[in-house]
Amino acid sequence: MKKNLGIYVHIPFCRSKCQYCDFYSLAGAEALMPEYQKALLQHIGEVAPFAAGYTVDTVYFGGGTPSLYGEKNLTKLLSMIQKRFNLDVRAEITLEANPDSADKKELKSLARAGFNRISLGMQSADDDKLKTLGRPHTFGDVRRAVADARDAGFKNLSLDLIYGLPSQTAESWRESLGAALSLRPEHLSCYGLKIEEHTPFFAKQNELDFPDDDLQADMYLSAVETLGKQGFRQYEISNFALPDRESRHNLKYWTGGEYVGLGAAAHSDFGGSRYSYFADLKGYIKGVLDGDAIVAESETLTPRERDGEYIMLRLRTSEGISEKEYFGSFRLDFAPLEELMKSYRDRGWADTDGRRWFFTPRGFLISNRLIGELLDAQSEAKLKTQLPILRHEYGKR
């Protein structure tokens, strides 16, 4: 049986830290790039033998700001992956980039090296909003970066957008969405702004005029409608793509595929184990180069122990869940889940094609609540299945 694997490489360096960002990234740490590169190259060599039976069909360089890391470092990392892993000739190889650090000459070199997908952090077409976010670019930089990426040969381009920004109106959101569409991307990610602890926005959230939940919901639904009319299919809560342009790497996260993470704070789900590395740049470098511990968390799960994940992750996608998959994988009764999904359908939150159940855009808006209810129903069903066994064991005593 063919086994596919994704590889994620975390590049935690940034020119500046955005006001809303809670990802592991560091500004002003460029002096550590050479040692980090050594650690990554060594780590690739150490992990590769464990993936001997796999074909790598996606590689994703995320951050941070990978485009700040430099074309030479990036191409060396990709070359090492190409040498040490069985890389599919049709692999999707993605680079995250900020418009201000997407250099035309370097993009051409990266495309020649094998990078074939680029994801640009546009976020907004409003320069004032970009300043509020702490972004180091303008919309003019976005236009230039898109043109340079196309000129370099990238035929698969994604743009990130954020709605729910301070003082943002429904009209200004539509304008940003329209500006993004005018650049003719193959993929769009539209994220609602979340105020995370330990970010500058969290500290001054009472000082800023954030759109309320109803306005954010309207922004989201307008994006779904607008993008649908332009031929973009919503294949995940926040992600939209033209036909066959879905992010194959990110789909691994939502459909239970295996992936290996490399770099500080990177996560993996590989060989039945799920683990992550410390969010500590210097600690990661020292750990790899000196052979010290770098794993922060680790757990081993059997396939049947992933029943809750199946619900949580699959219902993030437009494909949703099915009785055949559910019973085949976990030997659990699908009826309690289907009963709930039918009640959601009556409220306009879910639908079915006769084989699979999935959330509608309005269901996606409250998916956390709905998934919580489904997980409760799953737990009750599992308990009922176990009760006869427990009674039997109790009767033996």
Score class of each variant (00 low, 15 high):
residue 255 T to F: 04
residue 200 P to L: 11
residue 38 K to S: 14
residue 91 A to G: 08
residue 278 F to T: 08
residue 45 G to M: 04
residue 60 Y to F: 15
residue 142 V to A: 08
residue 38 K to M: 11
residue 21 C to R: 00
residue 356 R to G: 05
residue 47 V to C: 06
residue 256 G to N: 02
residue 144 R to M: 02
residue 106 E to W: 04
residue 7 I to N: 01
residue 124 S to D: 07
residue 35 E to G: 09
residue 313 L to H: 01
residue 265 A to C: 10
residue 397 R to T: 13
residue 169 T to L: 14
residue 170 A to V: 06
residue 3 K to P: 01
residue 10 H to N: 04
residue 339 E to I: 05
residue 227 L to H: 02
residue 196 E to W: 03
residue 191 Y to D: 11
residue 366 I to Y: 05
residue 222 S to A: 14
residue 78 L to E: 06
residue 132 T to A: 09
residue 238 S to P: 07
residue 333 D to P: 01
residue 80 M to H: 10
residue 45 G to N: 06
residue 287 G to C: 11
residue 235 Y to P: 00
residue 300 T to G: 13
residue 216 Q to N: 12
residue 26 L to P: 00
residue 347 R to L: 12
residue 132 T to V: 13
residue 376 D to Y: 05
residue 23 F to V: 01
residue 134 G to A: 13
residue 218 D to A: 10
residue 328 G to S: 15
residue 362 R to I: 00
residue 66 P to E: 04
residue 84 R to L: 11
residue 106 E to I: 08
residue 288 V to I: 15
residue 142 V to M: 14
residue 96 E to H: 02
residue 331 R to A: 12
residue 220 Y to S: 08
residue 76 K to C: 00
residue 147 A to M: 07
residue 334 F to L: 09
residue 366 I to A: 02
residue 313 L to G: 01
residue 166 P to V: 01
residue 142 V to G: 01
residue 101 S to K: 02
residue 68 L to S: 07
residue 116 N to M: 11
residue 357 W to D: 00
residue 126 D to I: 06
residue 18 C to I: 11
residue 219 M to L: 12
residue 337 L to F: 04
residue 350 A to G: 09
residue 19 Q to E: 15
residue 8 Y to D: 13
residue 120 L to T: 02
residue 331 R to E: 12
residue 1 M to F: 14
residue 185 P to Y: 10
residue 56 V to A: 08
residue 194 K to N: 12
residue 311 I to K: 01
residue 79 S to P: 02
residue 121 G to H: 01
residue 151 D to M: 05
residue 308 G to T: 02
residue 140 G to W: 09
residue 193 L to K: 06
residue 297 E to C: 11
residue 179 A to H: 08
residue 231 G to A: 11
residue 169 T to K: 13
residue 104 K to E: 13
residue 131 K to M: 14
residue 349 W to K: 11
